[in-house]
Design a binder for these strands. Structure first.
Lengths: 336, 336
DNA sequence: TCTAAAAGGTTTATCGTTCAACTTGACTAT
DNA sequence: ATAGTCAAGTTGAACGATAAACCTTTTAGA
C-alpha cells in the first residue's frame, strides 16, 4: 500500500504538497504539479489512510448510526422493516456525500461514550426510542447528532419528525368516511408523549368530528411483534361489535390480518383495517393494505443530509423537519 | 477528552505502561500499579482512541460488511429481510467480540479497494452476489474475508453456505407427499451455478423420485421484487393445470399469494405453496406460509465468529460450513 | 562477594496525515 | 537599487497510540 510520502517522492515534492492537492487546497500549487500528482495518485492506486487523517484532523468522516430499544419481538433493529428502510436512505446519502457509516446498537451510557471517543465520530444519527439520560449525555458531548424517531420538544434540536397526529387523523377519518363508526385503535402502549400519543390524538380528533368519543374498550396497547400481533388478530376475531381497525404500524396490521384470517374472519368483508407506515409489507398482505404512507427511505436520507449540512457549517439549513403523510388506498377497507 | 498520556502523568508512569495495562499485557507491571491505573482510567473516563491504535498497529478492530447487487426491487440491501436478518446476527456477534462494524454498499472495484485501505479493516464479510472480478481483487488483497451468499467452489475459502439443494428437495418432496404432482418452480433466473441452481436441482431430484420430470412450462424465472411477484401471482391465477408452487424465497411466495388472492384464487384451497428462508414474513401471510427454514440470524453470527477466529489465529476453526435446512409446516399446503 | 536473572519499568522511533510557520526565487514598483 | 509582493513550495511538530530495545533495582544462588 502506497502512502502519501511515496507519492511525494515520485512526484519530487513534499508530502504537504500532495496532501494539499488531495484535499483540493490548491491555492499554492501550480497547475502542472496538480496534474502530475493526480496522475501519479491514479497510477499508484494511492488511497489516503483515513485513520491517520482522523487522528490529526480530529474528524473521521465516519457518521455513527445508533439505535436502542427496538423490540426484540420484531427481530431487533436490522429486522425491523421501518428501520431497514431508514438505513437504506441513510446509507445512500452518506455514501454519496463521502461519509462512512458505523452502525451500532447501544445498550447503556458507557457504550455510547466509548463509541464517541473511540472513533472521533463526526456526527451521530439516533434512531429508536432513547431514554432521557442518553439524551442528556448526547447534549453534553460536542458531537452533533440528529434524532429520527425519538422526539424532543425543542425547535432547535436537529430532528426529522413525522406528521403523526395528522396520520392518525387521516386513517381514522378515512374509515369514518367509509361509514365505519366503531373503530378499534391498536398500537404499542400509548405514552404521555411521543409518536404513538400523537397518532392516538389524531384518532380522537377524527372521532370527535363525527361526534364520537374514544371508548377505552376499543384501545389495544399491543406490542408489534409477530406473535403478539397475530394473537391480537385471533383475539379480535372473538369480538364483533366493531367494523374497522386502525393499526399504528403495518407490521402490526399484517399480524392482525393473519390472525383474523386464521380465525376465519375476512378482510375487508368482515373487518376493515388501515395500517401505518406504508412499508413494503403493505403490498404483500392479502388483501393489500390501505395504509398511511410516509417516505421512510427519504426520511433517512434527509436526516443524513441535515446532519451533514450542520457538519459542513451550512447554517442556513433547516434544523427541524416534519415530514408529510398521505393515505394510500388499497383493498383492506370496505365501504359500509 | 483524556489521552493515554494524561493517565500516565496522573499515575506517575510512562504511557507504555498504561498501554500495557489497557491491553492486558501485564507481565511486567505490578499488581498495585495495574489496580491504580485501572482506577484512574475509570475516574477520568478514559477511552483509547482507536484511530491512533489502528494507525500504529495496523489493525483497526473494524470489520467491513459489504454488499453488492441486492435487487433494487426488494428495496436494496437494508430493506431485504434476508439481509436484515443476516445483519442482525453479524452485528450481535461483532459487538460481543469487541469489533466495530462498517457497512457499505460496493458498486465497483475502486470502491472496494478504497474501503480496504482507508480504514485498515481487519476483515470483510461479503454478502450479496459478487461478480468474479471483485472476488479476484479480494483474493489478491491480504485482508481476510468470508463469503455468505456468494458461493465459490473451494473448500479452503471461508464461507457459510446453506444446504440449498436439500432445501429444494425437501420443499418439493413435501408437496409430492401431500399428493401434488404438477408443481411450479418459481425463483429468480436460474444460473449455471449458485444458490438458485442448487434449489432447482433439489426440485428436480424430488420430482425424479416420483418418476416425474421438470416441465419447462412450469419453471418461472421470476425476480423477487414486490411488483413482479404479485404480478406473477395474478398471472398464475390464469393457469389451472397445477396444484402447487415452490417459491424459492418467502418474499416471492408472499407476493404470489397476494397476487393469487387479488385474482380470487385461494391458498391453500385452490393452490398450495411452499416458500424458502422462513423469514418473519412467513408468519404474516394469510395463510401463514409453509417454508424451508434456515436460521439466517445464526448464519450471520457464525460468519462473524468464523472470521474473527481467523483474525485471532485460531487455526483449528472450520473454514467452510454448510448450514442445515428444515421444513416448517404452516397452513399454505393442503393435502390432496 | 560476585553474577545472573527476574521484576518493573522507561525511551525512542514510528504509523500516515495535517497544519502553522517558514523559505526561496522571480517579478514589480518606486 | 531596494524593499515589497507573490507564487510555489518546504519544514518540523503534532495527533494518540504501540513496539522494540533498553535500563535499573532487587533477589537468589554459588
Amino acid at each position: 500500500m502506497s502512502t502519501i510520502k511515496d507519492i511525494a517522492r515520485v512526484a519530487g515534492v513534499s508530502a504537504t504538497t500532495v496532501s494539499n492537492v488531495i484535499r483540493g487546497n490548491t491555492g499554492r500549487v501550480s497547475q502542472e504539479m496538480i496534474q502530475r500528482i493526480n496522475h501519479i495518485i491514479d497510477e499508484m492506486h494511492y488511497v489516503p489512510n483515513l485513520s491517520a487523517r482522523a487522528l490529526v484532523s480530529n474528524a473521521s468522516h465516519i457518521i455513527g448510526v445508533i439505535n436502542h430499544l427496538v423490540p426484540p419481538e420484531v427481530g431487533g433493529f436490522f429486522q425491523d422493516p421501518f428501520h431497514g428502510a431508514l438505513l437504506a436512505g441513510i446509507e445512500q446519502t452518506l455514501r454519496d456525500r463521502g461519509y462512512y457509516m458505523m452502525v451500532r446498537t447501544i445498550n447503556n451510557v458507557p457504550e455510547l461514550l466509548s463509541l464517541l471517543t473511540n472513533w472521533n465520530l463526526d456526527g451521530l444519527i439516533v434512531t429508536g426510542i432513547f431514554p432521557s439520560d442518553f439524551y442528556l449525555h448526547l447534549k453534553s458531548n460536542s458531537t452533533p447528532f440528529i434524532l429520527i424517531d425519538s422526539y424532543v420538544d425543542s425547535e432547535n434540536e436537529l430532528q426529522v419528525r413525522l406528521a403523526d397526529r395528522l396520520g392518525g387523523y387521516k386513517a381514522t377519518r378515512h374509515l369514518l368516511e367509509k361509514g365505519h363508526r366503531n373503530i378499534l385503535f391498536c398500537g404499542p402502549q400509548i405514552q404521555k408523549q411521543g409518536v404513538l400519543r400523537e397518532r392516538y390524538e389524531g384518532y380522537c380528533e377524527a372521532l370527535g368530528e363525527y361526534g364520537l368519543a374514544p371508548d377505552p374498550a376499543n384501545i389495544y396497547g399491543q406490542e408489534i411483534g409477530i406473535e403478539q400481533s397475530t394473537a391480537l388478530g385471533r383475539e379480535l376475531a372473538r369480538r364483533n361489535d366493531y367494523t374497522a381497525i386502525f393499526a399504528t404500524a403495518d407490521i402490526l396490521a399484517a399480524g392482525i390480518i393473519s390472525g383474523l384470517f386464521e380465525a376465519g374472519r375476512k378482510v375487508p368483508e368482515d373487518v376493515s383495517i388501515v395500517g401505518f407506515d406504508d412499508l413494503n409489507i403493505a403490498r404483500l398482505t392479502s388483501p393489500p393494505l390501505t395504509s398511511i404512507h410516509q417516505n421512510v427511505v427519504q426520511r433517512g436520507s434527509i436526516a443524513a443530509e441535515m446532519l451533514i449540512s450542520v457538519l459542513e457549517k451550512d447554517t442556513g439549513a433547516p434544523r427541524n423537519i416534519v415530514m408529510p403523510v398521505s393515505l394510500v388506498e388499497r383493498s383492506s377497507v370496505r365501504a359500509l
